[in-house]
């Protein structure tokens, strides 16, 4: 599937079709992550059931500790 992630066009492996899988794909499952798809922030409880669509505009920001 082709989506735009953080402003870049990317091609996701076929098995990545939910927000939860996207987060796992980027190894962010143990982090604090905020995900927005097509300008809507996705509630954390809905990550597993929220499906990605061809052409989705995804913004994904994870928190880090350092400074």
């Amino acid at each position: 599937m082709n989506v735009r992630l953080n402003g870049k066009s990317i091609s996701l492996p076929a098995e990545i079709d939910t927000v939860a899988e996207l987060i796992r794909h980027y190894e962010l499952e143990n982090r604090i992550v905020i995900v927005e798809i097509d300008k809507n922030i996705i509630e954390k409880t809905l990550y597993a059931e929220t499906e990605l669509k061809e052409g989705s505009e995804i913004e994904m920001i994870h928190f880090v500790g350092g400074g």
Partner: peptide, 13 residues
Amino acid sequence: CLIDHLPAQSETC
């Protein structure tokens, strides 16, 4: 509001 819990660990430098 944005960070509702401390993650088990996070990346550091």
